[in-house]
Design a protein around this nucleic acid. Structure first.
Lengths: 139, 139
DNA sequence: CTAGAAGTTGAAGTTGACTTTAAGTCAAGG
DNA sequence: CCTTGACTTAAAGTCAACTTCAACTTCTAG
């Protein structure tokens, strides 16, 4: 696969793929006459990177998660720590997403005069109990 | 409330609050001798903005959602369209977050040799059925 | 009354994640 | 053979979202 084909397949620009390679997210592929030749492995990697990016990981974090792969070594322990903390962060951002969804839905249904009324409701929901933010109503 | 107190309350820097004001996300508050004086309303607004930001909204989008409030007007229709599309996007990003969570969990449990093995599993899960990505296993 | 902390402004600087540009190399079709 | 288009590089440019700076004013405590 050429870089152009891989780009089309993964909805990225070639420049982004080169950038990922330069910053160590993507392994440097084989070359044929100076040109990059990719296996389908690369497409999986890019899918994974895209997912992580969409869920709020920074490129350095993704790099860490991809590289320091868990074993019983010290590096593996760092990986586990990072992964565990990320799982928690994901849980939190899922809760936030649900809260915002709920808010948008109630705004569409209700007749609040200002968005801030709804925000007040949201803030109240979020500050009191640790979880259960998703089921709050604002109108 | 002064800008410093509001900043402490909302875990932002004063500069960020001024920036939000300049870009229209936060209404300009009353002034006392040239200094900004905030009501608790502002804190709710910032909580809301923070939430939206964490769930992947850009500042212009947040501005739109805060401003073009739904009524029966044309502006309200635009708001509804944006909100509806955002609800869908949130659903998608929740699914992605769950998928990544699942992947991180299985990596911690399993003994895959490379992350890309797990990525292969993830990619397979994501490309076939529209939903249900969250329950895939990779090891 | 005065030092120092906190506030004000506009403008310039920073960071992350790419994209664009410039100057070239390679390969496939006519 | 020659053009056309996809590829190569390093370096510079862009954009969002802030932060920092410089120069100044104002509030608060001793």
């Amino acid at each position: 696969m050429t870089i152009g084909e891989l780009a089309a397949l993964s909805n990225l620009k070639p420049s982004a793929i080169r950038f990922y390679e330069k910053t160590g997210l993507l392994p440097a592929p084989a070359r044929k006459n100076g040109r990059r030749v990719y296996s389908s492995e690369a497409a999986n990697r890019l899918t994974l990177i895209g997912f992580a990016k969409d869920t709020g990981f920074s490129l350095p974090e993704i790099k860490l998660l991809l590289h320091g792969f868990p074993s019983t070594t010290t590096a593996g322990d760092r990986w586990r720590k990072l992964a565990t903390s990320k799982i928690g962060q994901l849980e939190a951002s899922i809760a936030k997403a649900r809260a915002i969804q709920g808010m948008l839905r109630s705004i569409m249904k209700c007749r609040c005069v200002t968005m801030d009324q709804c925000a007040r409701g949201l803030a109240a929901c979020l500050k009191t109990p640790p979880a259960r933010a998703a089921r709050c109503r604002t109108s």
